[in-house]
Amino acid sequence: MKNNFASLAVAAAVVLAAAPAIAEKADRAKPMNVEADALRYDDVQQTSVFTGRVVVTKGTIVIRGAKMTVKQDPEGYQSGTVTAEPGKLAFFRQKRDGVDEYIEGEGETIEYDGRADKVKFIGRAEMRRLRGTTIADETSGSVITYDNTNDQFAVDGGGSAATPANPGGRVRATLAPRNSAATATPPAAAASAPPARLRPSTTIRQEVR
C-alpha cells in the first residue's frame, strides 16, 4: 500500500488473570497505534510492515525507527521488530509502573515482545533509567535485554566483536546507589514502591519472538 501516510490502531486482546495481584501491566492491554509513510498488511499471516518515519505508541510505550514489522498471535499479543536507518539508531521508551521513572534505549534493531513484556536492543545498544529527567542508571553493550515484568536486564558486550561505539566488546554501566539521601523513599511509600534500581540478570537472554 503506497500511501504518503498510514495510521493503524491495532487492538490487543489480552488474556487477563483471574486474581488482581497477578493482573497484566497496563501497557500490554492498550491498543498499538502506528504512523508511517507506507503500510503493507498480510491478513493471513497477521503481519503489518510499516516503512518510513515509523512512530509507535502503546500506552506509555513510544518506539521510533525507519521500519517496523508487527505480528499478532492468535491470543492477540503483539510483537514487533524495529530497524533504524543506516548509521542511525531506533528508539524505545516506557514508563515503569508505580514510580516517576522511565526506561529508554536505542539500538540498530529493537525487538519488542508484548506477551513476555520484554524488549531487546541489538547493535550499538544503550539503555537508561530516568528518574524524572535525571539519568539514574545507564548501560551499553552489543545486546541488551530488558524484562519489564521483573525489572531486570541483561547485557552482552559482544566479546571480540568490538565496534567504534563499543571498543573492546565490553559492557559499560553506571548504576545509581540503591540507598542515598538523594534517592531515599518516604516511609509511607516504601512498602508499595518497586525497587529503586534495576537488577542485572543472567536469566533473560533468550531470544525475543
Rank of each mutant, 00 (worst) to 15 (best):
R64G: 10
A38H: 10
R199D: 11
G158L: 03
A191Y: 00
L198G: 11
F5G: 07
V15S: 10
D113T: 03
R178A: 15
K67A: 04
A191C: 02
V143L: 04
D97M: 08
D147S: 11
G76Y: 05
G168L: 08
G114N: 05
T185P: 03
Q72D: 02
G141F: 09
N150M: 12
A154G: 15
T47D: 03
S140G: 08
V54W: 02
P186C: 11
T139K: 05
K71S: 12
R205A: 10
Y77Q: 13
A66T: 03
G105H: 06
S201P: 09
M32N: 06
V55N: 13
E126G: 09
A84K: 00
I63M: 14
F5S: 12
V56L: 13
P187T: 06
L8F: 14
R197D: 08
R199T: 15
E35Y: 11
G52I: 02
A173K: 05
S79G: 14
L175C: 04
D73V: 06
A176F: 04
T139I: 10
Y77C: 00
R209G: 15
D113L: 04
I110W: 04
K2R: 09
A116G: 03
G65Y: 03
A193V: 05
P164Q: 03
G141E: 08
F5R: 13
N150I: 01
A6D: 13
R197C: 06
S140Q: 11
E111F: 01
S140R: 11
